[in-house]
């Protein structure tokens, strides 16, 4: 009978709350579970950071934050579901990344989602990209792999998270620089880094290009090997892995991985502000930083205004890059 009693009590409380009126709806935010949409499969970088954030803010606000994976269409399906097809009441957030924002706008002349469709609350992570192969692959260095691909481009099967994803930008930059016709290689579109890494570990594709954090679990499990990191200098989580530039293959760093939180454009400002300040506090908390360190996630915070400026700059950069490497349409 406890159940029925508590249900009745809950209903009574709810009726009272409903009576208290909508005016306080924003002041006591969140008063019910918040959904964080991850537009990729569980286990990828977007998913990992979303779960860290959900865990931290969920405890802070004593309301569950639910991570919901909605993969497909290179992240567009989930991002649209969060930004365009949900209620702008602050109870649906998007774990927004380059693939669903700047790179999308760079690759499409009429993108299925625009920057104006969202309000950023802040950027949380910035991470370099890495080139990874299966643990027992014959190529010891990135240079070696590049030479093989140069000789026989049609044998390269590589995975990406969508036509506008960081893997594709990075790979095409690489192909352009080593003089390989990208059209000859075989690109497999997956539903996110976790999906792509599983295919790499199972030997179904030869090369996967993802962020440092995304490569972490499979590297640690001994299933894959990182050949190069795309960064101006070596990264602290992978001290033994040389940079692509160091190996004389790719000059410059034009692609990087980042993740932030955004909301539908009509979401009330006080709610977005609340998220912004909560994230700002979170990224200073040693406990949160330790948790991020455990999964090799490089925390690098930008506030809402800085994030927007950063993404706008990226849009210009990726538009230019997409035009040059021939993936803009």
């Amino acid at each position: 009978m406890i159940t029925r009693l508590s249900l009745v009590m809950r209903m009574t409380v709810c009726v009272l709350l409903a009576g208290a009126g909508a005016a306080s709806a924003q002041a006591d935010y969140p008063n019910k579970p918040v959904e964080i949409v991850v537009p990729f499969t569980a286990g990828g970088g977007t998913d990992l950071i979303a779960r860290l954030v959900a865990d931290y803010l969920g405890k802070k606000w004593s309301q569950p934050l639910l991570v919901v994976n909605k993969p497909g269409g290179g992240g567009v399906i989930g991002a649209r579901a969060a930004l365009k097809e949900s209620r702008p009441d602050g109870y649906t957030a998007l774990m927004d990344i380059h693939t669903t924002s700047s790179m999308l706008m760079g690759a499409w002349k009429t993108p299925p989602l625009k920057l104006e469709d969202r309000k950023f609350a802040g950027r949380i992570v910035r991470d370099p990209m890495v080139f990874a192969v299966k643990a027992d692959a014959p190529w010891k260095t990135f240079k070696e792999l590049s030479d093989v691909v140069k000789a026989k481009p049609e044998e390269l099967v590589w995975s990406t998270v969508g036509p506008a994803g960081p893997s594709r930008y990075t790979a095409y930059d690489w192909f352009t620089q080593i003089g390989v016709d990208a059209v000859k290689t075989k690109m497999v579109i997956t539903e996110g880094a976790a999906d792509s890494m599983t295919k790499l570990a199972g030997g179904h594709v030869m090369l996967a290009i993802h962020s440092v954090a995304e490569a972490h679990a499979m590297t640690k499990a001994g299933k894959i090997r990182v050949l190069a990191v795309l960064s101006p200098s070596r990264v602290k989580f992978l001290p033994d892995v040389p940079t692509a530039e160091e190996q004389g293959v790719i000059k410059g760093v034009r692609v990087q991985w980042w993740a932030g939180v955004s909301f539908p454009a009509q979401t009330p400002d006080p709610i977005v502000k609340k998220w912004e300040s909560a994230i700002a506090e979170m990224v200073k908390d040693p406990q949160f930083l330790a948790a991020a360190e455990r999964i090799n996630m490089n925390i690098d915070f930008l506030n809402a205004a800085e994030t927007r400026a950063f993404v706008e700059k990226e849009v210009a950069g990726y538009t230019d890059m997409a035009t040059k490497i021939g993936i803009r349409r």
């Binding site: 690759a107 036509p163 990208a182 000859k184 690109m187 349409r329």
Partner: peptide
Amino acid sequence: GLREAMVAGA
């Protein structure tokens, strides 16, 4: 037609 434009060679 659209695919040819977006992912040439796929």
